[in-house]
Write a protein that binds this DNA or RNA. Structure first.
Length: 531
RNA sequence: GCUCGUGUGGUGUAGCUCGGCCCAUCAUGACGGACUCUCGAUCCGUCGACCCGGGUUCAAAUCCCGGCACGAGCACCA
């Protein structure tokens, strides 16, 4: 029977089989509609209108490109399921990752920009301390938590040997007393002297789960609540309690937090809570930046290696925004990776191509001459027009044109890039000034206009006529990715700060600052977007 | 070391649950060509992948077993 079918396949092809099946057994074709999945996979156990998600960054700095994955994916799911996306500041570490007071506002602003929406709620963990401490008190009383005064290295040995620590077996009463002692500034225990652990069992297969730490003493003041609290929860306890308090239904996070999920599930079991559905994404490295460490960036900025979080060389959202990247490009970038647990390494070129597709359509054209050479051109016997007319956008003539006035007496002076000049005079000296005229250069920074009509085979270069130029400084990376500021001349225009333009034959750049109107020598600031 | 996870073209990704529309999708990239008064855009074409080894089966990217490689966790960070 099967042989017969295979023979038929060989001789008649798939179409014949299909038509036979359609007649005899339509069910067999049921599964054949293997459609290409669009976008993200479905959320398990999700009911439209009842999905609660959260994005929980540490406000020790503004958001990075890496964070935007979390914002985009969670935001997309929230939109798809008509759900709620909570923005939660996990600011419970005052020592290793001290919160930056400015970062709360930055992140809120960046969240709005990236999602185009307000968060469903904004929660500050540091405002919720009473809840966490109350829950901890209950759990100590119930025996789910115990206070451990073993030094960290000591406990590490015990964990490896799967042995209980002596604190674990102390009586319930004594645990309550130890808890009070921890909370009491005059109790004698200082930072590092005691920690609260979850009684998960030292026989756990996974060493990371063995009696994991839930709260600890911190002496560094918190920038929002000062020294009001002494005992602070760690991520796994704080997050576990808060997710439950907020009714979070789905957690989508990096797979580096897989053990976190497992730790928290053990706590949820003790408390009789139902753990949210959890999905993960893998680790991402962008070739040009490597990983995204907020702490590392903070210290590099402090060391003076960067001008600040919005330095264009940094992979922060602030920097990308300042360079003219759009949220649509960012979204397309992240959605393209889907929700796989695979670790990936991607080049910026992928993001840039998505961004360029939009920018090319919308960006007005402008001429920017880096390292300019001033040329005096003669134009024997030729009558020049009153002005040169160049399109603002070659595919959209309806947007109008740029008009450069030309001198009436033929004392024509223009600027071209030094590189173009050099290559012209080392060749036959011929160049085409784009949209204007063919010229012939001599080696003495002079030359003549040969004809206005375009001639085939002559290299076309961008240029500026004297009188429409203004000094400009463009901040851009070289081939090895090192950023520097380059001087040049920019065509005058009415564009304001924030406008992204396409510099002819160069690439995209965003206007970051305008020159003082009363000072002809002050510069326009340009920041490179990409090619 | 223990635990967990992942392996599809240069880079990502679809297909894997439920084996056969798969000599494997789409994007990005590289290369070539056409067109265009930008090295931009547009159009056309080319290149290039199922980690390895066994097994099951008429049939394996897909199921099973064993390797290997890479990544993460084992913090009083998030």
């Amino acid at each position: 029977m099967v042989d017969e079918a295979n023979e038929l396949w060989k001789t008649s092809g798939a179409d014949a089989i299909r038509s036979i099946l359609e007649e005899e057994s339509p069910d067999a074709l049921e599964k054949r509609t293997k459609e290409r999945r669009e976008g993200l996979p479905e959320l398990p156990n999700a009911k439209a209108g009842e999905v609660v998600l959260r994005f929980a960054p540490n406000p020790n700095g503004p958001l990075s490109l890496g964070h935007s994955r979390g914002v985009m994916i969670n935001g997309e799911y929230a939109a798809t399921y008509d759900g709620k996306l909570i923005l939660r500041f996990d600011d419970t570490d005052t020592k290793n990752k001290p919160p930056d007071l400015r970062a709360y506002d930055w992140i809120l602003d960046e969240f709005r920009w990236l999602t185009g929406n307000e968060p469903g709620a904004v929660i500050y963990a540091s405002d919720r301390m009473e809840t966490y401490l109350q829950k901890a008190t209950e759990c100590v009383a119930d025996g789910h938590l115990y206070i451990c005064s073993c030094p960290a290295p000591e406990f590490k040995k015990l964990r490896e040997a799967k042995q209980d620590c002596p604190c674990r077996d102390l009586a319930r009463e004594e645990q309550n007393e130890r808890w009070q002692k921890m909370l009491d500034p005059k109790g004698g225990w200082r930072e590092g002297h005691a920690v609260v652990r979850v009684r998960t069992g030292m026989d756990q297969k996974n060493p990371a789960l063995r009696d994991w730490p839930a709260l600890r003493i911190q002496s560094a003041p918190h920038p929002r609540v000062g020294t009001t609290y002494r005992v602070w929860p760690l991520l796994d306890f704080q997050s576990a309690v808060e997710d439950h308090e907020q009714g979070v239904t789905h957690i989508i996070r990096g797979k580096d937090l897989m053990d976190s999920t497992r730790k928290q599930k053990l706590l949820y079991e003790k408390l009789g809570w139902e753990y949210p559905e959890t999905l993960y994404w893998g680790r991402v490295k962008v070739h040009e930046f490597g990983g995204f460490s907020t702490s590392q960036m903070a210290s590099d900025i402090a060391a003076g290696e960067f001008e600040g979080w919005h330095d264009p060389a940094l992979p922060t959202i602030q920097a990308l925004r300042r360079r003219g990247f759009s949220t649509a490009a960012l979204k397309r970038f992240w959605m393209g990776f889907g929700l796989t647990e695979k670790d990936i390494q991607v080049p910026m070129a992928t993001l840039e191509s998505f961004n360029a597709a939009e920018l090319d359509e919308t960006s007005p054209r402008l001429s920017f001459i880096q390292d300019p050479v001033r040329l005096a051109l003669e134009c024997k016997g030729l009558t020049l027009p009153d002005f040169v007319e160049l399109p603002i956008h070659p595919e959209h003539p309806e947007l109008g044109s740029r008009n450069w006035p030309l001198p009436t007496d033929c004392g024509l002076e223009v600027f071209i890039e030094r590189d173009d000049y050099k290559s012209a005079i080392s060749g036959d000296g011929r160049l085409r000034l784009k949209d204007f005229a063919n010229i012939h250069l001599d080696p003495h920074q002079g030359g003549e206009v040969v004809q206005l009509e375009k001639a085939d085979g002559v290299r076309i270069v961008h240029w500026l006529v004297a009188g429409v130029e203004r000094p400009a400084v463009m901040w851009r990376p070289d081939e090895s990715g090192v950023w520097s500021k380059r001087k040049g001349l920019l065509e005058t225009s009415g564009h304001g700060v924030g406008q992204v333009v396409q510099l002819e034959r160069v690439g995209f750049a965003r206007i970051d600052g305008l020159p003082a109107s009363n000072d002809p020598t002050s510069s326009t600031d340009l920041i490179w977007t990409h090619g």
